[in-house]
């Protein structure tokens, strides 16, 4: 059996966990190609009009896997325990894909992570292994290896992250969901453009998660979504260490619609650019806004030096 993994949504958080798990179990898999115009177009056709851009990208990736695998992997992840919920999109994703591709006879496979109602990640992966026809000890072994791989991967990310914080010149904190920031068609053009301007992007998503969650309390009291809390914590950690903050969201992200507003209203000492991406073609508009934002920051830095 060959598993297809959509290169979208939480693949960007879990790639090493998922891939190591499948590799250790000797399960063949294929990851869909990087997002391009065709993927977004297919996803937009498949999706409900009003759904968020990121979920349209996701459905485009599932579409791209049709005929290339025997089953598509779609996990259902509701929460990370009490008080740590995810956007309901991740609770619904399995059923969305199942219903959207029903007439294509698409097979789905995945795990259900819902610690509030059932077990934690280990239980979810043992169950996942069972669905793949693997015995419990095999799955357990694969899961431990996968967790190790995830940890090593994360450590490397953290090392690079800290390096980026030490770089001279203008640094911008990029706040956005991993699946938007790293997507080749959505967020990466923003990062690439910053590089051409000699600006160092510092990714909020790369911050130490435990520290970030602790820091978030200073910025928000009741933020229910854990991903947004991580990002808000990173803002709290780095607001004095960067020259500006870019809030990068896709239209019309529910959690970001509220989280960004809180950030804009409470973080007054650092310039903020609120960048809402809607998947329209051409980056000219986005680049113009980034360019003038960087100009403002340069003026601020020069003014600060002038005073000294």
């Amino acid at each position: 059996m060959k598993i297809g993994i959509p290169r979208a949504f939480l693949y960007y958080r879990y790639s090493s966990l998922w891939e190591t798990f499948l590799e250790t179990l000797n399960v063949d898999y294929v990851v869909s190609r990087e997002t391009d115009k065709a993927i977004l177009k297919q996803g937009t056709i498949r999706a409900i009009d009003e759904a968020c851009l990121s979920s349209k990208v996701y459905l485009g990736h599932v579409d791209a896997l049709l005929g290339k695998c025997d089953a598509v992997m779609v996990p259902r992840i509701a929460n990370f325990g009490k008080g740590n919920i995810l956007c309901t999109k991740f609770s619904a994703l399995y059923d969305i894909v199942d219903n959207t591709f029903r007439d294509n006879g698409l097979q789905l496979v995945g795990y259900n992570m819902d610690p509030i109602k059932s077990g934690g990640e280990l239980a979810a992966f043992l169950d996942f292994g069972k669905k793949l026809g693997k015995k419990k000890p095999e799955s357990f072994y694969a899961y431990t290896l996968a967790k190790q791989a995830e940890r090593i991967d994360r450590q490397e990310t953290l090392r690079q992250h800290e390096e980026s914080l030490r770089k001279p010149g203008i640094k911008l904190l990029i706040v956005g969901h991993c699946y938007n920031i790293h997507d080749k068609y959505i967020g990466r053009p923003v990062l690439d453009y910053l590089a051409t301007q000699g600006v160092t992007p510092v990714l909020a998503d790369d911050a130490d998660r435990r520290k970030a969650l602790e820091s978030a309390a200073a910025l928000t009291e009741t933020m229910p979504w854990i991903f947004n809390r991580e990002q808000m914590g990173a803002i709290e950690m780095y607001r004095d260490k960067v020259d500006g903050i870019v809030l990068l969201s896709t239209f019309p992200c529910g959690p970001d619609s509220l989280a960004n507003e809180t950030v804009i209203r409470r973080v007054k000492d650092t310039p903020i650019l609120n960048l809402l991406l809607d998947g329209q073609e051409g980056n000219a508009g986005v680049e113009t806004r980034l360019e003038s934002f960087i100009d403002i920051i340069r003026f601020r830095r020069e003014a600060a030096y002038g005073e000294a």
């Binding site: 759904a51 956007c87 309901t88 999109k89 059923d95 969305i96 959207t100 029903r102 019309p252 619609s257």
Partner: peptide, 16 residues
């Protein structure tokens, strides 16, 4: 209401 995620996610099922 516009953009209500849980209800948008119910729609593919409603269509079926």
């Amino acid at each position: 209401s516009f953009g209500c995620t849980p209800e948008i996610d119910a729609m593919p099922v409603l269509q079926n």
